[in-house]
Write a protein that binds this DNA or RNA. Structure first.
Length: 195
DNA sequence: CTCTCGATGCGCT
DNA sequence: GCGCATCGAGAGA
């Protein structure tokens, strides 16, 4: 099935974010496939974006955001968790889409093993939860998503009747007026949305 | 169900 | 030293 191409990611970030909904994120782990449909994302665009990790300019942490499109930007947060982004736009233009929630499709048994004592509905309904379920960590930072290596995105689908909705981004700090832009995209009423 | 609060470590000022 | 693109336990209703 179709791997999403470099050109898909080398576009304006809001378009990429919207078009990622319904696509299938695949993680290959010890020859096991773990995958899910992307049902919620957020866009982070440029150094002027008050909520973006690129706000301080190029640093070691956010370097992947400045790199070529179609690669992973994985960061460590709150001393405990990882979150996964997809780098967008041309090299040198720091922008990315945060993957916030998945609908699990393949590898449920292994996901349950990675997130013990959780009901299935809480396997991948948050940015750090899905990284736990798919065993995504710093070793996937800079990974090329345009190759079938250990992490990639391939063609998915939107079911008939599924509607795309937007809202302001969640969990971001700072000046609220600057953060009101509706840069969160999600499939309306989907059961695997984050809280 | 909702709300509050603590965990935990690293990058950056 | 501070603050963080989060989560889960525990309490209350």
């Amino acid at each position: 099935m179709g791997l999403l191409s470099r050109k898909f990611y080398a576009r304006p970030t809001l378009a990429v974010a919207r078009d990622l909904l319904g696509q299938r994120l695949v993680r290959l782990l010890d020859s096991h496939r773990l995958s899910g449909r992307i049902v919620e994302v957020e866009a982070y665009i440029g150094e002027m974006d008050q909520a973006s990790h690129a706000r301080p300019g190029l640093t070691n942490r956010n370097a992947a955001m400045y790199g070529p499109p179609g690669h992973a930007y994985v960061y460590f947060i709150y001393g405990l968790y990882y979150c996964l982004n997809v780098v967008t736009e041309a090299k040198g233009s720091p922008a990315a889409v945060l993957i916030r929630a998945l609908e699990p499709l393949e590898g449920l048994e292994m996901m349950r093993h990675h997130r013990p004592n959780r009901p299935d509905r809480e396997l991948t309904n948050g940015p750090a939860k899905l990284c736990q379920a798919l065993a995504v960590n710093k070793s996937q930072n800079h990974a090329d998503l345009c190759q079938r290596d250990t992490l990639w995105i391939q063609d998915g689908w939107l079911a008939t009747g599924e509607q795309i909705a937007t809202s302001p981004r969640v969990g971001v700090r700072g000046d609220q007026t600057a953060l009101a832009a509706p840069w969160r995209f999600y499939i309306q009423d989907h059961p695997f949305l984050s809280r």
